[in-house]
Design a binder for these strands. Structure first.
Lengths: 419, 419
DNA sequence: ATCATTTTTTTGGACGCCGAAATAAAACAA
DNA sequence: TTGTTTTATTTCGGCGTCCAAAAAAATGAT
């Protein structure tokens, strides 16, 4: 309730309502839009014809209701869908072992992909923005897409990203800190760009998949090369005041605990990330500086196998991870009482080894009354969810900041606010 | 962006905008409202005259700008203010040692107070709703106010309150759990009623005092008979999905730590609440069940004096409290990176004893990058802030759910949603 | 008294939504 | 085939809100 309301706002909001309904259902007839939005048929006609004139909507093929509704009677429904050519967006995923890109059209369909094995860790951080820009330019060459038609670039990065400043504050993918990215990409290509934490993008992806399930207040914990978290508060992914929030992995579990990649001691990640599990199992001192190299999947599979065979050191490693995760979640529950906690990522492969300890820790760490309302689920997420979430987020931004106002050519006010 | 927009929504929103501006500034002339809201003079005239006709606004005396602006020229400003008679609200504060009530008018001014020393701990929990209703009825007898003119009752309670269900889930003020309150009060008096955690009400009060300072993302920690927290996220006090959130005091600090009043071990409260400090200092076993009696202020003053004299056991007690609070805050920062943390309550009297340990713990517990942007301040809050916050919250609710639609007589839709 | 200045109200136009009626496009029935 | 029924969409007229511009109100300055 901050903005002044006028007829302009009304149209904008209702356009957005229509677009949101379409994003969720793929394609809808006008009557159905009316049901979803509460708008009258007259208004739907008015708004949708304007959106069609803007090139944002188009009549869709009969793709929608094939057999389910065998056309009872009356005038048939005219399905409308978002015009794939209304805009494009690019998703970029930066991780320890390289850069991955995807180009999507206005409907969210991925048109092409690209992957580069460049090691970012040793590279000159000042050149990184340029590197990303070049990769994007190469991506746009294959199915030739004019940069002018790309509405937005979203970058997902491991570690702490400051989306306000457009920088990577700290990431295991880089040796140095505070690396400016957004501005460089934006200046180089003329395309608005924003950067965010990768776990947050998984949360965006889950919202896109099932808004009813993940749209309330939920935490998505990613276990793998690190431990990340995306926080959904009232249906919105939470980016703190600085745009760098929800560093669950670097929440302290125990004072003077094992050394973490971030330099502190006792972080949850230092118990439960890939490197931590291996460190526990190997019997190395927990104060030994951890490796920054990407850990091969085989190593983790071997560790899991060892634990399943009952090898004590491996079993103990998972127990320690489970306990740290459990107490971490207990603390999270005490603060936010989310209605759902989603455990995701490669680390969940060993869930049956972790779970008993995790559950016990939660029971010890939080009063029954608070714990009772939270549902914990494990979702085997393929890492592509990060790309999907980044695309979803970019498109939602385009809807809100551009399409609610008009066609891409007349970019709305493009506030670059909250980002 | 959930609601369908139409001319109705526009008026509602702009009415609310005006009311919010008035709440913040006390009284404003129409031109000034225009500046604050961005609305045209024509619209301001239209909206304000409607609000005056509804009995919500009235012309205010010259109270506003006395000397500062010695009336340069032109037509003088007509100050408008919220009509005190537009509605009344009641605030109820339930604590270990009794019930405290206040009646406020539509402008937020407190008209009368009442206090009762009834011990709630041993009383029949089923009768508690009736007890509150009777107290409210007695409060409304002194300056005779018709229940029909009371728009809302807000109840603040120590411990976990479920504002959705209208119950006290768990509180040190009650022996039993899940005590229904809201419904009983509402049925008995016919006045909408909601219940919330007391620390959240302090947060509401701070927002009322200085929106610019506390309106972003902040945590308000209350230290006293217990440790509570109110969480402000994007300018709104956070009530979780169940309405029972931010139980910072019952966030675990260390597994197998001291026994807490909630029955768990290692809660922050079990280190830093009044009873915990006394327990540390007395050298009692930390596994001894803590007392549920209210602790007299003298005992705490004596403990502070002892610590200031350098008595080892007292000094150590504050050190332990500081460490637990510090690590708790470090964990909170890792999850939410609030831009401000406010320490408040009687416990802050001994802040200089606690602070060094608290600071050290935060430094050990969270990476510099996240810690850098959070400002920690101590506010010596008199406990009346809870009453003030409860009134503020009730009035904000009245503005949003009633006055935005029309006068009190034609109560808006009174959704009782989020509550 | 008249002019200048500032605030507030009035007036007329634009835009968006809605309900109702009209139109369109089918299936069904004779 | 032709009319009837049904459902979807568009058109039309009315209403409410906002805004810009003009008018009115209220006071200080000259």
């Amino acid at each position: 309730m901050r903005e002044k309301a006028d007829s302009d706002l009304v149209r904008r909001q209702n356009r957005l309502l229509l677009l949101e309904a379409l994003r969720q259902h793929g394609s809808l007839a006008r009557v159905e839009m009316g049901r979803h939005t509460g708008l009258s048929p007259a208004s739907i006609t008015s708004i949708s014809s304007q959106l069609i004139a803007d090139g944002i909507l188009q009549e869709a093929g009969e793709a929608a209701s094939p057999a389910e509704m065998p056309h009872r009677r009356g005038r048939p429904l005219t399905q409308l869908a978002i015009n794939p050519k209304s805009a494009h967006v690019v998703a970029v995923k930066v991780s320890i072992d390289g850069i991955e890109l995807a180009l999507a059209d206005g409907s969210g369909a991925i048109l092409s992909r690209r992957r580069s094995r460049t090691s970012t860790y040793e590279a000159d951080p000042r050149a990184f923005g340029k590197l990303v820009a070049d990769e994007v330019a190469a991506l746009l060459a294959k199915p030739r897409v004019a940069a002018r038609r790309v509405a937005r670039i979203g970058i997902a990065v491991q570690g702490v990203a400051d989306s306000k400043a457009g920088t990577v504050v700290w990431s295991p993918a880089f040796r140095t800190r505070n690396i400016a990215v957004s501005a460089a990409v934006q200046d180089s290509l003329g395309i608005p760009c924003n950067i965010a934490n990768d776990a947050n993008m998984i949360a965006e992806g889950l919202i896109g998949i099932d808004r009813a399930r993940y749209g309330g207040t939920a935490a998505v914990v990613f276990m793998g090369y690190g431990v990340g978290m995306g926080l959904i508060i009232n249906g919105q992914v939470y980016h703190g005041p600085t745009g760098a929030a929800a560093e669950f992995g670097h929440m302290n579990h125990l004072p003077d605990g094992p050394l973490c990649r971030c330099g502190r001691r006792g972080c949850v990640e230092a118990y439960a990330a890939d490197y931590s599990l291996l460190r526990w199992a190997s019997g190395e001192a927990a104060t030994r500086p951890p490796s920054f190299n990407a850990i091969p999947e085989e190593d983790m599979l071997a560790l899991e196998a060892a634990a399943r065979r009952g090898e004590a050191s491996a079993v103990a490693a998972y127990a320690k991870a489970g306990e740290a995760l459990g107490f971490g979640l207990a603390r999270l529950i005490a603060i936010l009482t989310p209605s759902r906690i989603v455990l995701a990522g490669p680390g969940t492969r060993a869930m049956e080894l972790i779970e008993p300890h995790l559950k016990r820790a939660i029971e010890a760490g939080v009063v029954d009354e608070l714990r009772r309302n939270v549902e914990i689920e494990t979702v085997p997420i393929d890492t592509d969810m990060i790309i999907k979430g980044t695309i979803d987020r970019a498109l939602r931004h385009v809807d809100r900041e551009i399409f609610a106002y008009g066609p891409l050519e007349r970019r709305g006010r493009e506030l670059e606010h909250i980002a």
